[in-house]
């Protein structure tokens, strides 16, 4: 009980700080300098219609590389943690079989979901979305496959190949930016094109495609690792 009281006291203190923060907050009427720079220069410099994409891929591209690495590490550690002492697959417990409706439905929908993922990351510089969202959509398609066919021997090698190749090409494109244009992950070694076309904004569609494939592969690895575990 003392512990719970302490917790409540702590929360009350934090709540007090939060209340003053909310009450004292006044929204800006103007963009701050950084945001104004991005808003003014993105269209001409980067050629991306989506400012968020421009920030994630180009202005803060190195951070994104780091983030993809963190995600990769998370997937790898998860695989390591779960791999120890994993027994054979045939020792599974009885699962309720999947109904025919869901099987047919998923076979129709999985290609569509995958194509939607491709749409989301290829159009990352024009519409909301991009590599991370598209990767998540692709992983959702993989999840539907796992759900309808739990014993399916998943194409682990294909996923691993996609993941590592996408990572290598991502760094390679970053280096091309360093040598052919202004700096690491600079997108302007390809023509910027007209604002709003699919092939515009230099290398951004390519980079986002690679990120999308990589993120999708990482999430798929996580999902299949978790679903391969033994029921306890």
């Amino acid at each position: 009980m003392v512990k719970r009281l302490l917790a409540l006291l702590l929360l009350a203190a934090i709540g007090g700080i939060f209340t003053t923060l909310v009450l004292g907050y006044m929204p800006d009427a103007e963009l701050n300098n950084t945001a104004r720079y991005y808003a003014d220069h993105t269209a001409a410099d980067i050629g991306s219609a989506n400012l968020v994409t421009a920030i994630v891929i180009t202005y803060r591209g190195l951070d994104t590389l780091g983030e993809v690495t963190v995600l990769f590490l998370a997937a790898a550690i998860l695989g390591l943690v779960l791999a120890r002492g994993r027994r054979q697959v045939q020792a599974r417990r009885e699962l309720t079989p999947v109904g025919e409706l869901l099987t047919t439905g998923s076979r129709v929908l999985v290609p569509l979901i995958m194509l939607l993922g491709v749409y989301v990351f290829v159009n990352g510089h024009l519409t909301p979305g991009g590599g991370f969202q598209g990767g998540a959509v692709i992983a959702s398609g993989v999840l539907l496959l796992l759900l309808t066919d739990p014993l399916r021997q998943f194409a682990h090698t294909l996923i691993a190949a996609v993941e590592s190749l996408a990572g290598v090409f991502y760094v390679a494109i970053g280096l091309m930016g360093l040598f052919l244009a202004g700096g690491f992950l600079d997108n302007r070694f390809l023509p910027i094109g007209t604002l709003g076309a699919l092939f515009s904004a230099g290398a951004i569609p390519i980079i986002y495609t690679l990120i999308g494939l990589k993120v999708g592969a990482e999430f798929s690895v996580m999902l299949s690792d978790l679903s391969d575990t033994e029921a306890l």
Partner: peptide
Amino acid sequence: AAARVIDPV
């Protein structure tokens, strides 16, 4: 754009 969009950061 600078007058119409919100902060993207």
